Simulated scan of single mutants.
Amino acid sequence: MNQTTRTLILAAAVTAIAAPVFADTICTVNALELRLRKTPSMKARVVAVLKKDQQVTTAGDCAGGWVKVSSTDGSLTGYVGGWALTSNAPKASAEATPAPSAQPEAAKPEAVIPVTAPPKEVPSNEKLAMQITELRLNVLGIERDMDKMNQEIQKIKTSIGKKKGHKKQAKK
């Protein structure tokens, strides 16, 4: 085999192995609205607003922090929060595809279909506002309790200081 043939075979092998790694993943938006931003920052300019069930492509995984996505037609590119995306790739499972066996066709067990968890419910603005208000009230309660404790500590310190003053006068 000459050098050119070896190079072509090696290039074909590398391409066959690496192609699935670099393949685009199709993800679906599972939030009611999702802001597509120019850079991975909450302060970044909003390029577009994606709607629920809209599909986008990404070079990597759909989940995680900031995910770089592009529209399926390639006209828009930007970053979104991975929490609001769901992968459209089928879940691989050892149970889903049973290993071939020597059993006759009639005796083979049926393949188990994996059950995937439903996407997390995105809370409404009203629920979020209620949670924020509850947390603020908790913080205010803690601050009030801390103020009371500090006042009690000051009383104890002053009473200890007065007792020390009496002891010094008694020694003289």
Rank of each mutant, 00 (worst) to 15 (best):
S70I: 01
G65D: 11
K148S: 09
E134F: 11
G81L: 07
T86G: 14
E126W: 01
E121T: 01
V69I: 04
D147T: 11
L34M: 02
I156M: 13
G165A: 03
M149C: 02
A94K: 05
A106I: 01
T86P: 01
V21P: 08
G165C: 04
T158G: 01
D147I: 08
V80I: 03
K157V: 00
K164T: 05
A92D: 03
K148Q: 12
T86Q: 15
L10A: 03
E105K: 00
Q54M: 07
K164F: 14
S101Q: 03
D145K: 01
P20N: 07
A11T: 06
A13F: 04
Q169H: 09
G141M: 14
D73Y: 08
A59V: 08
H166G: 11
Q131K: 08
A117C: 15
P114M: 10
Q3M: 10
V80R: 00
T5I: 06
S93K: 09
T86E: 15
G165M: 02
V56K: 04
E152M: 05
K108D: 00
A48R: 00
A18Q: 11
V69R: 01
G78C: 04
T72C: 08
E110M: 10
A92R: 06
T15W: 12
F22Y: 10
Y79V: 07
A96S: 06
K155R: 08
P123K: 14
I9P: 03
P119S: 08
G161R: 09
E95C: 03
A13N: 01
A99C: 04
A117G: 11
N125G: 06
G78S: 02
P119C: 11
K155A: 08
V29G: 00
G82R: 01
E95Q: 11
P109I: 02
Q55R: 12
T28Q: 05
G74L: 06
K68G: 01
P20R: 09
N2Y: 06
G60Q: 09
K155Y: 10
S93W: 07
K167L: 11
E105C: 00
S101W: 06
